[in-house]
Each structure stands twice: as structure tokens, then as C-alpha cells.
């Protein structure tokens, strides 16, 4: 096996990176792929709680890098999906405990063991971000349809281009179709016009995201949730499938039924 390394980054904080990493990882694992996700947010670890694995942590990323344990020992196996693993971030250290070349070395060791390595980047464009993208084969840039998130995404896209890490692919998260319809939210087309990169996913605003993180059960396995479906679509696109983008412009089924004959 030679894993593909995917990093989710955004510039701006709180746009949904950790949620997305957890859900893409779960969706890929549910399709029989062997997946390891790495929490790159050292000092602010969160991927463990979103995945519901917080009680099983013994070793973390910095322990591996500083040689206190072997790579295998820091990989927590998800009991629900046997081929899903998490390497948690250290909570009591800061980003300087890891360097970009540490990440490259670690991912190179891991590449032979899994199909996918999914890395959760911290917010910002400094050390933590540089660590998270250092080993990436492909970066998914995440934004919300909102002025500051789009501006920061553009900065990140520019930095990746300058570093020869482009072209990045875009995920638009927390789209609210009702607000788009009344002209109070940037549409998918608007964001694509502005950022001018390829789209890989549109995730609607969905209360189930919070319910799922309350429970520590990613919703990518829930076919009834809209966000869950959107995350599954992203996973399938990563696997090379051509999945058409959902049209969120018709917010409810009734309007859709009335609109068409």
C-alpha cells in the first residue's frame, strides 16, 4: 500500500476542519479503505472527541516524534470501523514540538501501512499549518460562505501555490440554502468565482453535526443527514468517483415537487 496523504486546512478557525476530517475518514473506512487520521492541532486537540475516542489515548503524535513510543502504539483503533485509526495531538505541548520534516518522515513510515492518511490542520498559516501540509499529496481548503472565511481561504490557496503544493480543492461548509435564496449568503457560484479553484464538496448547515459531535459518533454513516451525505460524497470523489454536486438551491421537497411537474 502507498497511502495518499490529504490535509484539510482553512486559515480561519472554526470553519469545520476537524468535523470534516473525522467524517471523511469514517466515510472512507466504511467503504473498506484503511485510514489513519492525524490530529495536527497540537495543544488544542479535538479530533479525538469528535471521533469519540478520547478515552483510549495513551500515546500521541509528539510521543512518536520524540521516540517515546512506536508509531503503531500511538494509533488508536476505532472499534466501530476496524480499519480506522487516530493519531491524537499532544495536549500539553505546542506546535514547535513538531517540524515539517518530522511530519514528512512520520507519513512516509505510515504510507506503506494504510490507504489514506488524513491530517487535521490547526487554524492559522504559521508553524502548525506548515506541519500539517508538509507531507500532503493533496490539500482540501475549507471555507464557509462568509467574507472573512473566503478571504483567509484565498490566502491559504495562495501560500500552497507558492509552495508548489497546489492545486488545492475547495470544500464549502455550512451553506444555508434559504439565506442564499434570499440573497443574504454568498452562493457556491460566488465563492467559486472568487477563489477560482476546483470544488470537491458542498456541505450544508446541519444541526445533526452538533448532535453527532455531542455523541462522539461522526454522522457520515447516517444516510438521512444532509451533511452526512455530503461528507460521503467527498469521500467518493477522493476515491475517483464522479459524484454530481447536489443542488441545494431548492430548499425543501415541497417546493421541488411544485416547481417541477
Amino acid at each position: 500500500m502507498t497511502a495518499k496523504v490529504i490535509t484539510v486546512a482553512s486559515g480561519k478557525g472554526g470553519v469545520g476542519k476537524t468535523t470534516t476530517v473525522a467524517n471523511i475518514a469514517v466515510a472512507l473506512a466504511a467503504r473498506g479503505q484503511k485510514v489513519t487520521c492525524i490530529d495536527g492541532d497540537i495543544g488544542l486537540r479535538n479530533l479525538d472527541v469528535v471521533l469519540g475516542l478520547e478515552n483510549r489515548i495513551v500515546y500521541d503524535l509528539v510521543d512518536v516524534i520524540e521516540g517515546r513510543c512506536r508509531l503503531r502504539q500511538a494509533m488508536i483503533r476505532d472499534k466501530r470501523l476496524s480499519e480506522l485509526y487516530l493519531i491524537p495531538a499532544a495536549q500539553t505541548r505546542d506546535k514547535t514540538a513538531v517540524s515539517p520534516s518530522d511530519m514528512v518522515r512520520l507519513c512516509d513510515e505510515l504510507r506503506t501501512e494504510v490507504d489514506w492518511i488524513i491530517i487535521d490542520s490547526p487554524a492559522g498559516i504559521e508553524r502548525g499549518f506548515k506541519n500539517a501540509v508538509a507531507a500532503a499529496d493533496r490539500v482540501l481548503v475549507m471555507t464557509n460562505p462568509e467574507v472573512s472565511a473566503v478571504r483567509d481561504a484565498d490566502r491559504v490557496i495562495g501560500l500552497l501555490e507558492a509552495d508548489g503544493k497546489g492545486p488545492a480543492s475547495l470544500i464549502i461548509n455550512r451553506l444555508n440554502p434559504t439565506m442564499v435564496k434570499r440573497g443574504d449568503m454568498l452562493s457556491v457560484e460566488d465563492v467559486l468565482d472568487l477563489l477560482a479553484i476546483d470544488l470537491i464538496g458542498i456541505v450544508p448547515e446541519d444541526e445533526n453535526v452538533i448532535v453527532a459531535s455531542n455523541k462522539g459518533q461522526p454522522l457520515a454513516l447516517d444516510d438521512k443527514s444532509k451533511a452526512g451525505q455530503a461528507f460521503q460524497h467527498i469521500a467518493r470523489r477522493l476515491l475517483g468517483e464522479k459524484v454530481p454536486f447536489q443542488d441545494f438551491n431548492t430548499p425543501n421537497v415541497f417546493q421541488r415537487l411544485l416547481g417541477r411537474k
Partner: peptide, 15 residues
């Protein structure tokens, strides 16, 4: 004016 339009125009200049 629709706020999404101002957002887009402002972003175009800022970017």
C-alpha cells in the same frame, strides 16, 4: 441591495 452582492464585490477588491 442584497448583502451577498456587497460581500462578493468587497471580496473581489480585497482579494
Amino acid at each position: 441591495k442584497k448583502s451577498a452582492n456587497s460581500a462578493k464585490e468587497r471580496l473581489q477588491l480585497v482579494l
